[in-house]
């Protein structure tokens, strides 16, 4: 399924942010290659530079050192070939759901009838067919995320960049959204780079899991997830799942200089699975 051709390449990437207190090094000497059609999850503690990696690929920021190459282009500007899904949906509150979804088509000059057809198709696929005239604030959190996803998908991007898109949802809705995303991508897998701090989410979704260290982020683990698709909640009982999970946790908490009490509770094992 996965061919080994490189879609995204980060070479020796360092990112520093200027601050009054001195430059903050978020990434340092990061090498990373993303393959076509691969669902890659980037896991890491808060502040490890996960989102910075997405911002680099999206073209929102440029690296201080090293190079970012997407489809052979060095440091490309933001564009519709790389759809970005934000943690907080990022829907335009001044547009209806239909207007939000059709935005990418509208600015490309796609005719009205074609836009309507596309919006209806994609809204149907994400289960928002009856909410096209609503404003974003009238929708539930899960529906807002699906609308944000629909807005990106209507542009048919080659690459999906997702920044903790389900982390602000309640546990049940988040799991429904994960299953929904997996189903949506199953017929035609896209290159997905998905940032999360939830180990179980990563294992449920990913073909490949990359674990970053604390700031400045380096790759400390790079593993393929050998679990058959479609996956269900039952994977939590599978041996390879448990092995990989404990491997990730050993890297997260077993390191020599790991803090004794980690204030970042985002990476604690989630005990309640609902």
């Amino acid at each position: 399924m996965v061919d080994s051709s490189e879609v995204i390449g980060l070479g020796g990437v360092g990112v520093e942010f200027a601050r009054p207190a001195g430059a903050l090094t978020v990434l340092q000497g990061l090498d990373l290659t993303i393959h076509r059609g691969d669902f890659t999850c980037i896991l890491g503690p808060s502040g490890s530079g996960k989102t910075t990696i997405l911002n680099l690929i999206a073209g929102f920021i440029r690296p201080t050192h090293g190079s970012v190459v997407v489809e052979g282009r060095e440091s490309p500007s933001p564009g519709r070939d790389r759809g970005y899904v934000f943690q907080h949906h990022g829907l335009f509150p001044w547009k209806s759901i239909a207007q939000n979804i059709e935005f990418g088509l509208l600015i490309r000059g796609v005719p009205r009838s074609e836009r309507r057809a596309q919006v209806h198709r994609i809204a149907g696929a994400v289960g928002l067919g009856d909410f096209l005239d609503d404003r974003p604030d009238q929708l539930s959190g899960g529906m807002q995320q699906r609308a944000g996803l629909a807005r990106v998908l209507v542009n048919e991007p080659e690459i999906l960049l997702m920044d903790e898109p389900f982390s602000s949802l309640d546990a049940m809705t988040a799991q429904q959204m994960r299953e929904f995303l997996a189903r949506l991508l199953a017929p035609a897998p896209k290159t997905v780079v998905f940032v999360t701090h939830d180990v179980d989410e990563a294992l449920f979704l990913a073909d490949r899991v990359i674990l970053l260290s604390e700031r400045p982020g380096r790759v400390v683990l790079d593993e393929r997830v050998q679990l058959a698709r479609p996956r269900s909640e039952d994977i939590v009982g599978e041996k390879s799942y448990l092995q990989l999970r404990s491997l990730i946790y050993s890297h997260l908490f077993g390191r020599e200089n790991a803090p004794a009490s980690d204030s970042d509770n985002a990476l604690r094992p989630s005990t309640a699975k609902d």
């Binding site: 999206a58 073209g59 500007s77 564009g79 970005y84 001044w94 990418g104 600015i107 990106v152």
Partner: peptide, 28 residues
């Protein structure tokens, strides 16, 4: 919100589109 500007950019918006579809309505 920078997120709104970035969203528009990653959906293919030019600076003029960002001005009229994001900056203006957002600050209306």
């Amino acid at each position: 919100r920078p997120e709104h500007i970035r969203t528009a950019q990653s959906l293919g918006a030019s600076p003029i589109v960002v001005a009229f579809h994001v900056l203006l309505p957002s600050s209306l």
